[in-house]
Design a protein around this nucleic acid. Structure first.
Lengths: 336, 336
DNA sequence: TTGAAAGCGTTACCAT
DNA sequence: ATGGTAACGCTTTCAA
């Protein structure tokens, strides 16, 4: 059984309030006593109980994170940033995954509330506002990264999806492409809607009307990218370039293109979104729209902490996205 | 402020012990009262405090996980399995990352102990046994997945690294390769040592002596794979095949090979280790030694729970690895 | 079937 | 500078 403050008090012949003070480096304790108590504590291998402390302090120094899956590199990298930043601020992170299911997400939030986390970060939260609020009896600061829904439901951190989609498409347009396809994400994801808007805006800026035949949908994972690409390849006139909802989708699309005997970028240019750490190492290195993952994670915890300290100034923030040109794009071979 | 059991007691006109019992579905409380109390609790939006409960129950229903980085897909996938399994068993997971630094790992373990996690899982724990034990005053079950050190320090889950390295190399040998290089992991990682042993055993089984020139070292990430590959490519006689410590290294190696104008697998066969989810989607799809990631994660939490329930039968387990042949390997063009 | 009270390991306030 | 004690929100005897 763990040694408690009382055990130390007994061993050091002082009251346990003194022990508590000494261990918390209170100036109210004589240096000498303090030293002795610490000695004893160390000898006895004392480790304070965060749970007892949490109970009385009413804060757990814990941030709850819910994410659909950590198995997607983009999420993993954001979470990594969250954890690092939290650690620096002496917070720990409880990680829960929802598998993208609103039911499970709600259950996860509930569990985090029961654990009395000081704040929560939802990465691509998938529930609707009213459900979330219903669950949200305790007023625990909650910030959402890349909210799946259009509706604002509190503090959120977004990336400029429209701008990103536009940049990606403009890049392709500037290279000379005209038949540019788009593989969107799941229809319910708002960021996908926005990226597609950017895509369409860019086309229109070039006087092109978005062609429904060239717009299809994946599932944000490679598998979906493959299937979408296969559909695109079956078209009477194939696209010469393609803008994908995210890097995972792009990886799938490239796989399908290779399987069909195409070369990238000679026969098909592809642009992704996210800029996962692996992007520069793919074959070919993937041109993609970078999201500032580290910053998104860091800002999320800073936002939670600001909220926690009663700061009312906190505002939603939308971070810029940035096109990173690598090897998966080039001018089309035949200008259409 | 959160509503507590006492608030409910007041509202429902019963003692708070009764409320506690009702909420825990104790048979000692009349169905009618139970129902009424629940009603009130629901109306008041009551959410039990896991921290108070943890204090009295002396268990937190929490498993602490420490990993070097979640940014590596292999780890991410193992952790995903841990989290899923834990959830099913009504446990939550506190995630901490050590960045592969023993100092930070120790600090993380200490933090987890203070939080009184019921058990801990170290994924590729990097500290030495004695340090770990020193830290381990409370006897918290601790299981290690892929222990970095040779020494056994408790319950661990390993994969058959030697067998995996052997299978990978035998596959290459059977294809007809004779100049087979190896890019190892960081020298301090025991699993790397074992995989290399497997590699050497296979060569010897074919009457080949491992050639130090063909054995180099990465850092378990793509960057290291690139650099290692560049060294290999600078050799007077290049290898025709290469077995890499892990998939991330293989990805880097392939990148360097492509950059040098080689084709894979025509000019160079490559085999990885891990079988990350992305492996089948790479170009070419990566031949690799699969680790049973889901099972490793699941077994780890089962082991923790078994230990927790006082089961003394728990034994270290080593899971089989399995070669998955995909497109990155083929017979060498010129048999040397 | 219900209530009263002790106790989990802390912090913090009030005395001394 | 130190000790005593209440309180945090819950579970669990022990009584009634």
């Amino acid at each position: 059984m763990a040694v408690s403050i009382k055990d130390i008090a007994r061993a050091a012949q002082v009251s346990y309030s003194t022990v508590s003070r000494a261990l918390n480096d209170s100036p109210l304790v004589k240096a000498e006593t303090k030293e002795r108590i610490r000695q004893v504590a160390a000898e006895m291998g004392y480790l304070p109980s965060a749970v007892a402390r949490s109970l009385v302090m009413r804060r757990t120094q814990t941030i709850g994170v819910v994410v659909s899956t950590i198995t997607d590199l983009f999420f993993a990298e954001v979470i990594h940033a969250i954890e690092e930043t939290a650690l620096r601020c002496r917070y720990n992170v409880i990680l829960t995954n929802s598998g993208g299911d609103p039911q499970r997400e709600l259950a996860a939030i509930r569990a985090l509330c029961e654990r009395r986390v000081d704040g929560m970060i939802l990465v691509s939260g998938c529930s609707r506002r009213k459900d979330l609020c219903a669950e949200h009896k305790l007023d625990i600061p909650m910030v959402i990264i890349n909210n799946v829904h259009q509706e604002h439901l509190g503090y959120s951190i977004e990336v400029d999806n429209i701008g990103g989609g536009r940049q990606a498409t403009l890049h392709l347009l500037e290279l000379g492409h005209r038949r540019i396809a788009h593989i969107a994400g799941p229809s319910r994801e708002w960021d996908s809607v926005e990226r597609q808007q950017g895509y369409e805006q860019a086309l229109q800026a070039y006087g092109l009307e978005p062609d429904p035949m060239l717009i299809t949908r994946g599932n944000s994972r490679p598998r979906g990218g493959i299937e979408a690409m296969e559909r695109l390849l079956a078209l009477p006139v194939r696209p010469t370039a393609i803008f994908c909802y995210n890097d995972a989708t792009a990886i799938g699309a490239m796989r399908a293109a290779y399987a069909a005997g195409l070369r990238i970028p000679q026969d098909l240019s592809v642009v992704g979104f996210d800029d996962i750490d692996l992007a520069p190492y793919l074959e070919p290195p993937l041109t993609t729209v970078a999201q500032p993952k580290r910053e998104m994670g860091a800002r999320a915890v800073e936002m939670v902490l600001a909220l926690l300290s009663g700061d009312q100034q906190v505002e939603d923030c939308v971070l810029p996205s940035r096109l990173v040109i690598r090897g998966s794009t080039m001018p089309p071979r035949i200008i259409v």
